[in-house]
């Protein structure tokens, strides 16, 4: 099982490295990241990354579905999924390998942005713990978005449709958080407790709670479960 996992995982990385799409998306993400990081940094004059982490959910909302859109949709479109299904590889392994690639790809981008933290440390006195908590929050959010994107990719055989579905799903979560103030109080309480974005915001203070870790991971698992179910359905339909 592990060997097939690594084989599939490696295949995704090879596709990403050998085709222009991965580079184009990474370039666009890092360009936008650099722009938003530097935009107001000197205006506020503080050596912290909370401004950047504040726009990160929006950036990931645009770019993560671009990574995940092709993962299953393209396999179905090109007819390679049927080939994959005949191999001794479980659906769970396929989902795990593709998710690990997507999370790894977005995680790599985030890791590259640690250059900002390094340069900020050269300029001023940064709170390393707070920044580390911000990165943990970002990695968890990336995992959640990647799982949503993968689920969207399992719903369609066209990448572009998968992108739109993934984007809309993530946007729905984002808007729920952004418009929470207009919801009834009971719903606000529920959202504050279960929304992965609310936990992302909370971690930016530099405090990591068990709930801040578990809740985004639970949502990730839920969407991976839905993706798995979506592929399993093909066996009886």
């Amino acid at each position: 099982m592990m060997s097939s996992f690594w084989a599939l995982h490696g295949k995704e990385w090879r596709i990403s490295l050998d085709t222009p799409l991965g580079y184009v998306v990474a370039t666009a993400f890092l360009f936008a990241s650099g722009f938003f990081f530097g935009k107001n940094l000197f205006l506020y004059g503080q050596a912290d990354m909370r401004g950047y982490f504040g726009v990160l959910p929006l950036l990931l909302m645009f770019f993560t579905p671009a990574v995940t859109m092709r993962l299953i949709a393209d396999e179905r479109h090109d007819g390679t999924f049927e080939l994959l299904a005949t191999m001794p590889v479980s659906t769970l392994t396929i989902i795990a390998a593709k998710f690990a690639f997507a999370w790894g790809q977005v995680g790599l981008w985030l890791l590259m942005t640690s250059v900002y933290a390094g340069s900020l440390a050269l300029l001023g006195d940064v709170d390393g713990g707070q920044i580390a908590a911000g990165y943990v929050a970002a990695f968890l959010l990336a995992a959640f978005y990647a799982s949503v994107g993968l689920f969207a990719s399992s719903l369609s055989s066209r990448s572009i449709v998968a992108y739109v579905i993934g984007f809309v799903l993530v946007l729905a979560f984002f808007l729920l958080g952004a418009t929470a103030g207009t919801l009834p109080v009971g719903w606000q309480d529920v959202l504050a407790l279960v929304s992965p974005l609310a936990h992302f915001d909370r971690m930016l203070r530099g405090v990591v709670g068990l709930d801040d870790l578990v809740i985004p991971l639970a949502w990730t698992l839920l969407f991976l479960g839905l993706s798995w179910f979506q592929l399993e359905r093909r066996q009886w339909q």
Binding site: L193, R205, V207, V208, V214, A218, L222, G225
Partner: peptide
């Protein structure tokens, strides 16, 4: 899976364990 996720979310919501990473 759904039940496990919902149970994890509920259990974690009531948890008071946290780590302060600020300098």
């Amino acid at each position: 899976t759904v039940a496990f996720c919902v149970a994890s979310i509920l259990a974690a919501s009531w948890s008071h364990v946290r780590w302060d990473w600020t300098e």
